[in-house]
Computed example of a mutant assay.
Amino acid sequence: MPQAARRTAASPSAAGAGGDARPVEPLSGTWPHALSHEPMLRVSDVLQLVQPQFPTLTPSKLRFLDSHGLVTPERTASGYRQYSPADVERLRFVLRQQRDHYRPLTVIREQLDALDSGRLHEPVTLTEIGEAPDDYLTATAVAERGGVTPEVLGALEEAGIVARTVPDGFEPAVLPTVVAAGAYLDAGGDVRGLRTLVLAARREADRAQAAAAPLRRKGGGEAEAAAGDFGEAAIAAFSAVVRHQVGG
């Protein structure tokens, strides 16, 4: 992607009598300029960092964005992609524009060009630059971060609502489920009723996956993204119906 530099300009306050005008320092590289551009993250590291916020992100979607010049990682001598912390933040920006604003790739590319040149400004959302999240969380950590007691977490595990990935470890992705389960129980529900709701939600998720299968068979990152968007839309529709019935 061609890099645009900020034009130098003379400032009246910078040029005194007989003094030289001070040029505005040009931007170099790609946005976000303040983050490290050192390639240090594998594809698996990027997925681990970004999937909690964007669960439908896949390796094929990363390849698709790379092929369209939106997020372009470095290549090792063996041809493997390696991403920098700046690449990860750039990826988050692209995914937010697609998910939250439904912007096409051409518009997102124009935005990135403007960010690269300094004509557009966007706050950096990365909170732990260059630091991968915990691979696994202990039961104590999950209970603390999820706002439930160890006993409640044990009940959720016994009911099959959450499950350990390793003998004493949960994936961080279980936290939203634990938080939602705690809110349900605090509102007066019980674990048995929650299990019924979870099973129903899983059935609907499976149906959404099956309905999206024809989109995936088309191949390519665009098809994968479309299938993921379809699945999310189906689950959102299911949730909206549930809220309407409960509210009604």
Rank of each mutant, 00 (worst) to 15 (best):
G16E: 07
F93E: 03
R192P: 01
L47N: 05
F230N: 08
D116I: 01
P172S: 07
S28D: 02
R243T: 14
V152E: 03
A5F: 04
E204S: 15
T125Q: 13
P55K: 09
V191A: 09
R92F: 04
G146C: 04
A183V: 11
A240F: 13
Q48F: 00
R7Y: 00
A143Y: 01
A208G: 15
Q111G: 06
L105G: 07
D20Q: 11
L115R: 02
V198I: 14
L41F: 13
D100K: 11
P32S: 05
V71T: 08
R217K: 15
A236F: 14
S28W: 00
V94Q: 04
T76H: 10
D186T: 07
L120P: 02
G169H: 05
L65E: 02
Q111I: 02
E131D: 04
A213H: 14
P26T: 01
G248A: 12
V50T: 05
R195D: 11
H68C: 07
G147V: 01
R81M: 06
V198M: 12
E144P: 01
L137Q: 06
T106C: 03
P133E: 03
D87W: 03
V107S: 12
A237N: 13
R145E: 12
R216M: 11
A211E: 15
T76D: 06
D134N: 06
Q48Y: 00
D66W: 11
A114Y: 00
G228C: 10
A226H: 11
P39V: 08
Q111D: 11
S36F: 04
G118M: 00
A143F: 01
L35P: 06
R42T: 15
G146N: 02
Y83S: 07
R202W: 14
A173T: 14
G16Q: 10
G231Y: 05
T138E: 09
E157M: 09
V241T: 14
L35H: 01
G160T: 13
L175Y: 08
A187E: 09
R145L: 13
R22Y: 00
D87F: 03
L49V: 13
G182L: 03
Y136T: 09
P32G: 06
Q245F: 11
D168R: 11
L70G: 03
V166D: 06
G147S: 02
L115G: 01
R216F: 09
G219M: 08
T30E: 02
G220L: 07
T56D: 15
A173K: 13
D206H: 15
A34R: 09
